[in-house]
Simulated assay, not measured.
Amino acid sequence: MACGTADDINVRTFGAPNTLDFHIYYERDGQVLSAFHDIPLFANDEKTLYNMVVEIPRWTNAKNEINKEAALNPIKQDIADGKARFIPNILPFKGYIWNYGAFPQTWEDPGYISPYTGFKGDNDPIDVIEIGQNVATVGEIKQVKVLGIIGLLDQDETDWKVVVIDAKDPLFDKINDIEDVETYKPGYLKSTDTFFRVYKLPSGKKENTIAFGGEAKNKEFATSIILETHEHWKSLINGTTPRQDIQTINLSVADSPYRVDADNSTVSSVPENNPAAPTPIDSKYDEWFYVSATNKEE
């Protein structure tokens, strides 16, 4: 489980963004990697920085994510009703209000009931929201510092959201824990709370709730949850926990029975880099929705 900044990792893209053909794979020296399993969680030896895989840049709507079910876990656009999925615009929010992504080498085990929330994990890598000033790109790997965590209860599942800041952000040295966010970015966490409560209402689902009475927990607590999900991932990748439909093929995890060589047929069959121009987004996804949160307690 080596550390690394991922500076030597590049993306291999094919298909047009905003379509179901869109894929982003990662590669090092021409060798394809798994976004889920081969990118290190920790970005430095001190384990104070983490590698964040950016799935959705701020102000955008395409619901891209690391795909657990596809071999080597590329970033793909999620599917809703057989079509590419887009997040609704909920006034005053245009798409996502932070750079959104995940930590590799973590997993919210659906067989584990969190003692803090009382709900099972959502079966995904742990989600990350990055609050720095720069808008990221899909597939970018950011080195980030952990600030805190939000205990989203999404449709009766524990869906942690780790709050982080880019190591290159001008406020990196000033924002060090969750209470600093309100000092330097007043209102941001309150808006985040509102967004997570209501963003599924336009699709007909119920309003979400936030654990701990809506309070974002601090860096120390967040770090403990990240390490917990890292341990759950270790059990998944070493075969202790059944993988079910999750693709666990990887090229770098030493103790994994799913590790393969670069000449494996699955690895070698990944198409070469062949990006296409983004497909225009249907105008219906520019619609605005007017909803408000009503549930203020866990």
Rank of each mutant, 00 (worst) to 15 (best):
W59R: 11
T229M: 10
I66Y: 02
F22E: 00
I226F: 09
I175G: 01
D78P: 09
G82E: 01
L41H: 04
A136P: 07
T106P: 12
V138P: 00
G101N: 04
N99K: 01
P88A: 05
L236S: 02
D78V: 05
L41W: 01
I165M: 11
A136I: 04
L171R: 11
P92V: 08
L201H: 06
P170D: 14
K120W: 00
H232Y: 10
W288T: 09
I24S: 00
D45F: 06
F14P: 01
E182T: 14
K205G: 02
N89R: 12
F196I: 02
I178S: 05
L20W: 04
D286T: 09
T48V: 10
Y100H: 10
S34F: 08
E220W: 02
I75M: 07
V54T: 12
F22G: 00
A62D: 08
P257S: 11
I210A: 02
E298C: 13
D127H: 02
K206R: 15
R12S: 10
E215P: 00
T48H: 11
T223R: 14
Q155A: 14
V181S: 06
K76I: 12
D124V: 06
G148H: 01
G82T: 03
T266K: 13
E140C: 05
K161A: 10
D156C: 05
W288E: 14
I9G: 09
P271G: 05
H230R: 10
K161N: 11
D38L: 10
T60Q: 04
N123R: 11
T248V: 15
K284R: 14
E220K: 15
V164R: 03
D154E: 15
K168Q: 15
W288C: 10
T248C: 15
D255K: 08
A70H: 06
L147V: 08
F103L: 14
E220I: 09
K120E: 08
F212V: 09
I75C: 04
G148M: 03
T266H: 10
N274W: 00
G30K: 06
A276Q: 15
R259E: 03
S268M: 13
T5G: 14
D7K: 14
I79C: 07
D177H: 02
I87N: 04
R197I: 07
F36P: 04
V138H: 04
R197A: 06
I97R: 05
N176W: 03
W107D: 05
S203I: 08
E207H: 10
S114M: 13
I90D: 02
E46W: 09
S224M: 12
D124N: 11
E182F: 06
D177S: 10
P110R: 04
V146G: 05
D193E: 13
Y116P: 00
Y116T: 08
F172S: 07
S252Q: 11
R58P: 00
A222T: 10
Y100E: 08
L91S: 15
G151I: 03
R243G: 09
K185Q: 15
E157F: 11
Q31F: 07
G132F: 04
Y285P: 07
R85T: 02
K145L: 06
S269P: 00
N264Q: 04
V146T: 12
D45R: 11
W160S: 05
N51T: 12
